[in-house]
Design a protein around this nucleic acid. Structure first.
Lengths: 191, 191
DNA sequence: CTCCTAAACGAACGATCGTTAGGGTCTAAG
DNA sequence: CTTAGACCCTAACGATCGTTCGTTTAGGAG
């Protein structure tokens, strides 16, 4: 993919994140690149292509984040690292992450189904961390892992709305995890 | 507000939630109501009005939910009830809640600022539950309430994406709260 | 029967939408 | 000097957008 084409995708992701897919016109995009709108069609076949590519980039980034989590650690640690990875992707690729999380639903046809499969796979990988942790005793054995993964993934998925691009995401993830690990109530024995 | 006008707002919220504000045309809306699109302008002044009203209904519903939380309970209980209230609003008024959480940003002019103020107020009320709880000793005194409220509100705000309309939201809120209260790690003394 | 009101009709408006077509300019390699 | 390819331009296409407006319809009240 040519350098120009990459720039196009990046700018498209930025505008889609800022104004939404349907709120961004090809004309807006062309203006942002200092070009006539017809010129864009030397690089793309349709506006949908740009959405699709941004979503795919997001999927790749999130999965790559999980790939880097070592699998020889206790479940708690792996969850903490997975949370770190997720928040880092959101902060470092905020536009792409926003499109992945919020604008994907304007994908048409097979591409919407493709996204859903990709997202389900991501959630499944997350869920496995909790399930394994419970089964191996790293986490409490009576853990409601269904609810736990929903809680964590919800927080992760909502992060794009408030995470500043320059945030210390590792520290933030650790703070979230600390609450998640021992609770807010304070009857827990100190670690 | 006439009955017809109320119906219009409800249908608009439904479509905005389903296809997004910019993804819904006045023509779509008219067709859903079995009417010519020009006819809608006997009831509204602009498409923006419909968005604004849906957002305001959402704000009202969420605040009303918090209003019903008794203030003579320990902080933990109040948080649990606040979570119940929030999820109940999402499930019972899914369309309006979705527009409030996701589509508000297409509000123009002063109305966007008005929304932001309203949301900030809601978050502040939530935050107070955690802060008070920590200060009074209902919650652990070393609680990171900033992170805690972010975690809870994130989960609450993301709920519209997965909450089925017929879910038992009270039970779900309690399950979330149970995890939040004692953590996932299992070193907590049983309650 | 007449009057009033709420509601919808149907045609049209200017603007903007995504997309296409054909031609022009530059650069770098053969 | 020629060729190829990347990049962009201008002009236009049919479709759809939100909105306006004068007219029509239906039902209830007087």
């Amino acid at each position: 993919m040519s350098a120009r084409r990459t720039e196009l995708t990046r700018e498209a992701a930025r505008l889609f994140a800022e104004r939404g897919y349907h709120g961004t016109s090809i004309g807006d995009l062309a203006k942002a690149l200092g070009v006539q709108k017809g010129s864009l069609y030397a690089h793309i076949e349709s506006k949908q292509d740009l959405l699709y590519e941004a979503v795919r980039e997001g999927a790749e980034a999130f999965h790559a984040g999980l790939d880097a989590v070592r699998d020889d650690l206790p479940a708690g640690e792996r969850i903490r690292l997975a949370l770190r990875a997720h928040l880092r992707v959101v902060a470092e690729q905020l536009d792409v992450a926003t499109v992945f999380v919020r604008e994907w639903r304007y994908l048409e046809g097979d591409r919407a189904a493709e996204f859903l499969a990709e997202r389900r796979r991501y959630e499944e990988r997350f869920r496995a961390l909790f399930r394994d942790g419970r089964e191996r005793g790293d986490l409490r054995t009576d853990l409601d892992d269904q609810a736990a993964v929903l809680l964590v993934l919800s927080a992760a998925n909502w992060a794009y709305t408030w995470l500043p691009a320059d945030a210390d995401t590792d520290e933030l993830a650790d703070r979230f995890y600390a609450i998640l690990a021992d609770g807010i109530r304070g009857y827990a024995t100190p670690r």
